[in-house]
Design a protein around this nucleic acid. Structure first.
Length: 418
DNA sequence: TCTGGGGTCCTAGGACCC
DNA sequence: TCTGGGGTCCTAGGACCC
């Protein structure tokens, strides 16, 4: 019998911070989004005092933060990525069938483990990760991916591990599981299901009008229903190349000039190009957008975007910057207070399938140059070397007032023990 | 004063072709 | 009044995820 497991780190970002600041144990901790804009991660203690609303603006919760002595961190993705890698590599020791689903979650597939005490095995995985990284995880095991997600949520309320293998156990769990908490059922689908009188996962599972589900929730919803019935539709997937990528940010300060937008777009193009090269792909199209702050009601609003197609696939930073700047020439309008911009790369294919265009007069990709840039930046830190187009002052740069150190990836910032 | 970023999948409908 | 039929490809937009 095949079984699926879902391992998920508890309050991942907060836990990463706490590993290096053990005095914060038992204290509420939150982590803010880019620009310290809103809260995106919360420890149990933070949720207990009424925080925990995803993407609640920081300025709206400041009173609570002061009152309850909440520890606040800017997000430190360098640290979280590195911690994530450590967790995933431990998981790989337990099963070769592993799908890294997000920075803090992985699906595991177990085949031929029928005689094993999976509860015990789960506990072993859990204690190994805790021991080696200091991060607490929850583990759910069941017959399908969707069911393992359910099991995982239940695990978190208990000892950290929960296995449900037979129909009786599963149905009992599903009866008290709200339909809107199922993985893949968002707000819109939940509303539709409620209108059909379906409130719990169990009621969804046994709802017989499958055509109606197909019509209202499309193929995705039907598959979820099957998965609840124990019929596996979703498999554990090997990592695949991204089909799109990009980079976008809100600005730390308001931006008015074309020059600053050009710098920002150059920076985002560089970031996106690095991602492209990391997965050894090239893109055939780049689109760029600029926009004002939509939260400011009184202000005149503006959004525009444009795209640029390449005759041959490219991952060359300078070529991408040039394209982004051409788009900016077309979409920039003076007189607006800009708050956000971004670059998206589309039509990605593997670099080794890229065909050179005989008639292309273009200088082509500076592959050697890009490789050297990537190497230097990897060794000495991001943006050690970059295009001058990205600017020097960068006063639009992301704000991060509460950033912790890069404890695990930078010798300069390594933890000191007195 | 202050409101994130990066993805995937599915479907409907338009454009186009014979 | 009545205005083919069937197929493919592409894109925009919705919904969802962490």
């Amino acid at each position: 019998m095949k079984l699926f497991g879902l391992v998920d780190c508890n309050s991942f970002y907060c836990s990463c911070e706490r590993v290096f600041r053990p005095e914060l144990r038992g204290r509420p901790v939150i982590v803010l989004s880019n620009n310290d804009g809103c809260a995106i991660a919360f420890t149990k203690e933070a949720k207990e005092i009424g925080l925990g609303l995803m993407c609640e603006p920081y300025f709206k919760i400041q009173d609570k933060i002061k009152k309850h002595n909440v520890a606040v961190f800017s997000s430190n993705y360098t640290l979280y990525d590195n911690m994530s890698r450590r967790v995933m590599s431990i998981l790989r020791d337990f099963t070769p069938r592993l799908e890294i689903y997000s920075v803090d979650e992985a699906f595991l597939e177990f085949d031929g483990f029928d005689d094993w005490d999976l509860e015990e095995y789960g506990k072993k995985i859990r204690s190994e990760i805790l021991h080696q990284t200091g991060l607490p995880v929850g583990i759910g095991l069941s017959l399908t991916k969707v069911l393992s997600k359910v099991a995982n949520k239940i695990a978190k309320k208990r000892t950290g591990v929960f296995v449900m293998k037979n129909e009786v156990e599963i149905d009992q769990a599903l009866r008290s599981f709200p339909v809107e908490d199922i993985w893949g059922i968002g707000r819109a689908s939940a509303t539709k299901l409620h209108m059909l009188g379906i409130k719990t996962a169990y009621e969804f599972k046994v709802y017989r009008d499958e055509k109606m589900i197909q019509r209202l929730l499309t193929k995705t919803g039907r598959e979820i229903q099957e998965e609840l019935r124990g019929v596996s539709c979703l498999s554990v997937e090997a990592p695949q190349d991204k089909k799109n990528t990009g980079a976008s940010r809100s600005f730390g300060a308001s931006v008015y000039t074309k020059k600053e937008l050009a710098e920002a777009l150059a920076e985002f193009s560089s970031l996106a190009a690095e991602k492209l090269r990391r997965q050894k792909s090239v893109c055939f199209s780049l689109s760029a957008f600029i926009q004002t702050n939509f939260f400011k009601d009184g202000n005149p609003q503006y959004y525009n975007s444009g795209s640029f197609n390449f005759a041959t696939g490219t991952s060359d930073t300078l070529r991408l910057i040039k394209a982004a700047h051409q788009i900016l020439d077309q979409i920039y309008r003076p007189g607006f207070e800009y708050k956000k911009a971004g670059v998206l790369l589309n039509h990605l294919i593997p670099q080794n399938q890229n065909q050179l265009d005989l008639f292309d007069e273009h200088e082509g990709d500076r592959e050697d140059l890009n490789q050297v840039i990537d190497l230097i930046n990897k060794k000495f830190g991001a943006r050690t070397i970059q295009s001058a187009a990205c600017g020097i002052g960068q006063n639009w740069k992301t704000v991060a007032n509460y950033r912790s150190a890069k404890y695990t990836t930078s010798w300069d910032e390594i933890l000191r023990i007195k």
